[in-house]
Computed example of a mutant assay.
Amino acid sequence: MPLGMRLVTWNINSLRLRLPVLEKLDATLAPDIICLQETKVPDPLFPADALRNMGFEHLHYKGMKSYNGVAILSRHPITPLEKLPDWHGKEDCRHIGAQVHLPSGPVELHDFYVPAGGDIPDPETNPKFAHKLAFVEEVTEWFTTRKRDRTVLVGDFNIAPLEHDVWSHKQLLNVVSHTPPETERLNAWLNVGFVDAMRHFVPASEKLYTWWSYRNRDWKKSNRGRRLDHVWITPDLVPDLTGMTVVREARDWDTPSDHVPVIVDFSL
């Protein structure tokens, strides 16, 4: 592992169910910080002791039963960010943030789980899709007014914004996660002042996926993936980027999530 900070983001799709998989991830990848989404565990039942035994002494989490939930696991000291917005007036555990205290100075880290949006890409007939669009709009507006330096945004954004972030741009243009209303809003959020750290290493002309549906009997053969998981950074951190890996092999681990972890390495 390179010197610096190794950050992993992963939609774990139930923390308690996949705790052994998380232990394997930790042993295999040796991350300094893991950001999780869809932990699906209320705070009183969060497996803090097990995670501290793995070496993550600093924890920040927000969860609920059966749905959503986000968590930051860190080997570095962290200070949770207080009084973050309650997006779209819902207390649905989709965002936490923390200051990570590194030898080079603090880094502000945000962990997001953006609403999936349901199946019908019409905000008039599908309240879940309307919620998704409003969520991204509100987050974008908030970041336009917030000081942005040494900041990292990660998570399952549930949107694949670029043509080669999906297996078929043409066939998925009217499928939730790749529709123009979603991709336009996500790009507006990015353009508030962030850099797509994954595409810093993999050109936009190349296919790049982080999610493969459970419905695909042979996910490798069909390779009908989407890039729903993202790592964004402020421009001042670009010189500190040293590597990025999509851990595709995790899709074949025992009881896998339909998402795979994404690693970004920094020389911080």
Rank of each mutant, 00 (worst) to 15 (best):
P2N: 14
L7K: 02
V8H: 03
T9F: 06
N11A: 09
N13G: 04
S14G: 09
S14T: 11
R16Y: 03
L17Y: 01
R18S: 07
P20A: 08
V21Q: 15
L22M: 04
E23C: 13
K24H: 12
L25D: 04
L25P: 00
D26F: 08
A27T: 08
T28H: 13
P31N: 07
D32K: 02
I34R: 01
C35K: 01
Q37S: 13
E38G: 05
K40H: 06
P42A: 15
D43Y: 04
L45R: 11
L45G: 03
A48C: 00
D49M: 07
N53W: 00
H58N: 06
L59P: 00
L59W: 01
H60L: 09
Y61G: 02
G63T: 02
N68G: 05
V70K: 02
A71E: 01
L73R: 07
S74R: 06
R75I: 05
H76A: 08
P77W: 00
P77Y: 02
I78M: 10
L81M: 14
L84G: 02
L84R: 12
D86G: 10
D86Q: 15
W87T: 04
K90C: 02
K90V: 04
C93A: 14
C93Y: 13
R94T: 05
A98Y: 03
Q99R: 13
Q99D: 14
P103I: 03
P103Y: 02
S104L: 11
L109Y: 03
F112H: 13
A116V: 00
G117R: 08
G118L: 11
D119H: 13
D119G: 12
I120K: 14
I120A: 05
P123N: 09
P123K: 11
T125W: 06
N126H: 06
A130K: 12
A130P: 01
E138Q: 11
V139S: 10
V139P: 00
T145V: 12
T145F: 11
R146C: 12
R146P: 03
R148M: 14
R150W: 01
R150D: 11
L153I: 15
L153T: 01
L153H: 12
G155P: 10
D156M: 09
N158K: 06
I159V: 15
P161Y: 05
E163G: 00
H164I: 02
W167D: 13
Q171A: 15
L172C: 08
L172Q: 10
L173H: 11
N174D: 15
V175M: 09
V176Q: 08
V176S: 06
S177H: 14
T179F: 08
P180E: 12
E182S: 09
R185S: 07
N191G: 04
G193P: 05
F194Q: 09
D196R: 03
M198W: 14
H200D: 10
F201W: 14
P203W: 10
A204F: 06
A204W: 00
Y209I: 13
W212C: 08
Y214P: 09
N216Q: 15
S222N: 14
L228C: 07
V231E: 01
V231Y: 01
L237Y: 04
P239Y: 09
L241D: 04
L241R: 03
G243F: 00
V247Y: 06
D252A: 12
W253N: 03
W253L: 08
W253E: 10
D254E: 15
T255G: 10
T255F: 13
P261K: 10
V262W: 01
V264K: 01
F266W: 05
S267V: 04
S267N: 14
S267I: 00
S267M: 05
L268P: 00
